[in-house]
Design a protein around this nucleic acid. Structure first.
Length: 774
DNA sequence: CAGTGAGCGAGCTTCCGCTTGACTT
């Protein structure tokens, strides 16, 4: 029995706070929101001023019951949810659901989890901010209306189970538009000239001085003409300019920047970053990981200061206060930082250690001095040409924060800008060129998004919140709008001309270009849905839509507008859009006519079918002729597939002949090319067999090889039950019975199982599977 | 585990943000 009940949002936070408060305080958590709009029947009373119909979320029933019990026993209930729009709404829902009486309820907020801050908060309670709550209700209702009115349009006009929403649909749009930019990109080539000069160092030994020609040549002829000139040219130092420069550390981590850096430096996916951070947070090692604030508490700043001065000295420290400037930031928390900044490392899994180290370094670096650099630019004149070569070098005069941490960039091509030392040279000094080389370079297409760079882009536009970045990225992939994939690059030839010992040589070389790792690609369905939404719901699909409604929510929060009026103003034209889309739009399937099959003269087209993208040959005719269908392969797209590639799809399945009186055919399935025989499937060997050319003999070879492998996998069978087999699989022995597989408990000797034992295992059944979402 | 692609038209799907487990492979 406690006199005081304090309710916060997260249990880890509750635990920390309880340590600061005396025995009279019991601190517990609501686990986020406890109520939400009803899922069935829309959850909004559209005839009655958009009145929300709230119900306690099923997974929160238990928590609410406990909270009720504690609230009844307490003399005073302190609601300490976050001080932002969502937090204020949580406070209000708690008050409503727990039926808290005003005289025994207090709303408090604090920005720092320290004893002083919390005691100060308790001394200064305030009423629940109704305006802020209404702003949240407007946000919630708008999102429900958009999601639940637009999604059904997609079910009718495109495909069932699809979804649309204020955040996810623009996330897909970004990816689709980037892909089209890449499709339409035409790479230009130019020639970059580099030279290596030999210069004596302090001891008179020759060292290399590498320099780039400032001008790039558009054509090979121009580049070649320049190299020809170089044969007779004299090179000399035109001038040397040395300029000081400095670098400043990046701000402490927010959710989005943590996801970006963990992706670049550690190769984590955004959801991986979040779950590792969650574990660190729960273990009390870092502050809260869902935040858009770059603010550090005064305690953190002081601890960092002491740590830096103690280990590196006074001059490495610089006190810095960071201000959040991203749109829509709500500053309910601190930046993500170590809870105890003097702790350089933590125990735990490898991933936890690495992520913690990253957070620690970033936090410390953010309180460190600028790095001071000196950048030297040497211009090298060419006697018979106005062009200049340029060599640049960078020397670190004082490393400052670079001692600890250096932020990465998304640009993979800037790695050659590494700081290098230049050999000692003087103005007017003559140089001997050892090598002059002109290399054909190509302009770069825009980069595809990674999960993390998409989060960055969304945050810049104020779309989505720290708690939703990772789930949004998962959703667009789950809906099949976007896939995260590796793609192999393609070979590209380029020309390289080199001048050595006055000999001009020319070579054609090859490089790999366009290879991608873990990048986001739109699928065909993603593109079709995107185009449909842009056509009929351009307002929602506008990148500025969220920013615009946020302005209105702010007006509600400031008490200058009534939330239901804001919604009404939005809803009337929006709903007309919905009605119009339902009425006017054709069923959309992204159909594209590719041309006619030269052999049969039949039309060939591609479109989205029930099971995904397909190619169609011929049409349904009145004479009862039916078209042929074939699924597109991974890597093929409605927008880009050619007639030839589509026609190739109809060459499979191929009949190879018979083996043991049964047909042998070859085709391509979800897992690649396979041979089919006697209702069994055998994969073709990668990079060896080609489904278009493979012959019967080789197919039989594969079938026999598979049989041999299966025999080895077979542990035991029973004559009484031919359908039951004990097999050896990838994860050890298991039972196969009537096309279902059953696990054998670890430690049991599979060979000794009797038929009865097996039947018992089968009766126990495979664990009831949760309904799987695709 | 991979083949399908018309169709009687049931009943279902879906949003964003706040939180943590409980899941499977």
């Amino acid at each position: 029995m406690h006199d005081n009940l304090v309710i916060v949002e997260s249990p880890a936070k509750a635990k920390t706070i309880e340590r600061f408060l005396g025995k009279e305080y019991f601190v517990t958590s609501s686990m986020g929101h406890i109520r939400d709009l009803e899922k069935k029947d829309f959850g909004i009373d559209m005839e009655n001023n958009y009145q929300p119909k709230y119900i306690v979320s099923p997974d929160k029933k238990k928590i609410v019951a406990e909270l009720k019990k504690h609230a009844k026993e307490a003399k005073m209930v302190w609601i300490a949810s976050d001080e932002d729009r969502e937090g204020e709404a949580i406070a209000w829902h708690l008050k409503e659901v727990l039926k808290l009486k005003p005289e025994k309820t207090r709303r408090i907020v604090f920005h720092e989890i320290t004893k002083e801050a919390i005691l100060k908060a308790i001394a200064n309670p305030r009423p629940i901010d109704e305006n802020l709550v209404n702003a949240q209700q407007a946000r919630r209702v708008l999102d429900r209306i958009v999601g639940f009115e637009v999604s059904p349009v997609l079910w009718k006009k495109v495909k069932p189970s699809l979804s649309a929403g204020r955040v996810q649909s623009v996330a897909v749009r970004l990816i689709v538009e980037r892909e089209r930019e890449i499709m339409n990109f035409e790479s230009q080539s130019n020639f970059r000239v580099t030279a290596v000069f030999l210069v004596p160092d302090k001891n008179g030994n020759p060292v290399e001085l590498k320099a780039d020609l400032k001008k790039r040549f558009e054509t090979k002829e121009q580049a070649k003409a320049f190299l020809e000139k170089c044969k007779t040219a004299e090179f000399s130092i035109a001038d040397i300019v040395t300029k000081p420069s400095k670098r400043t550390p990046a701000a402490p981590f927010t959710t989005s920047t943590l996801q970006q850096e963990a992706s670049r430096k550690l190769g984590f996916s955004v959801s991986q970053t979040m779950s590792v951070a969650q574990r660190l947070y729960e273990a009390g090692k870092i502050t809260y990981m869902r935040t858009d604030s770059v603010n550090l508490s005064s305690l953190a700043i002081n601890t960092a200061k002491n740590k830096i001065i103690e280990s590196l000295g006074e001059k490495y420290h610089k006190l810095r206060q960071y201000k959040t400037k991203s749109k829509g930031a709500q500053e309910a928390h601190e930046a993500i930082r170590p809870s105890y900044i003097d702790q350089e490392e933590v125990s735990g899994s490898n991933q936890e250690k690495r992520l913690y180290e990253l957070i620690w370094k970033r936090t410390i670096a953010s309180q460190m001095a600028d790095a001071e650099l000196e950048r030297t630019t040497i211009n090298i004149a060419v006697s018979n040409s106005p062009e200049l070569f340029q060599a640049t070098g960078e020397v670190i005069k004082f490393d400052g924060f670079l001692r600890v941490y250096m932020e990465s960039t998304d640009n993979e091509d800037e790695s050659d800008e590494n700081a290098s030392l230049l050999p000692p040279v003087k103005e007017k000094q003559a140089l001997r060129a050892e090598l002059v080389e002109a290399t054909e370079r190509f302009t770069q297409r825009p980069p595809r998004y990674t999960e993390a760079s998409l989060v960055k882009k969304l945050e810049e536009q104020g779309i989505g919140r720290p708690s939703t970045y990772a789930p949004t990225i998962t959703t667009v992939q789950n809906r099949g709008y976007v896939v995260k994939e590796d793609r192999p690059g393609v070979e590209r030839q380029f020309v390289q001309m080199s001048l050595v010992d006055n000999q001009l040589k020319e070579a054609v070389k090859t490089e790999i270009t366009g290879a991608e790792r873990s990048k986001l690609f739109p699928t065909d369905i993603g593109m079709v849905v995107n185009d449909f939404l842009i056509k009929y719901f351009d307002k929602i699909m506008d990148y500025r839509f969220t920013a615009k409604v946020e302005v209105e929510f702010d007006e509600v929060a400031d008490g200058n507008r009534v939330w239901s009026e804001v919604i009404d103003e939005f809803y009337k034209p929006f709903h007309e859009n919905v009605e119009n889309a339902l009425e006017v739009s054709e069923r959309t399937n992204g159909e594209r006519i590719l041309g006619d099959d030269p052999k049969t003269g039949k039309p060939v087209s591609v479109k989205i079918g029930r099971y995904g993208p397909l190619a169609q040959l011929g049409e349904t005719t009145e004479e009862g002729e039916k078209p042929q269908f074939a699924s597109l392969r991974s890597g093929q797209h409605l927008e880009t597939i050619t007639l030839e590639d589509a026609l190739d799809l109809f060459k499979l399945p191929r009949d190879l002949g018979e083996y043991e009186d049964k047909k042998v055919s070859v085709a391509i399935g979800r897992f690649g090319p396979y041979v089919r025989h006697d209702n069994k499937f055998v994969s073709l060997e990668k990079n060896v067999d080609d489904p278009y050319t493979i012959e019967l003999d080789r197919a039989i070879e594969l079938i026999e090889a598979k049989r041999e492998k299966d025999r080895k996998a077979l542990i035991k069978t029973f004559d009484e039950e031919p359908e039951l087999r004990i097999l050896n699989g990838r994860w050890g022995p298991y039972i196969s019975y009537k096309k279902k597989n059953y696990r054998i408990a670890k430690g049991t000797e599979a060979e000794k199982l009797s038929l009865e034992d097996c039947m018992k295992i089968i009766e126990a059944g495979p664990k009831p599977k949760q309904k799987k979402k695709k």
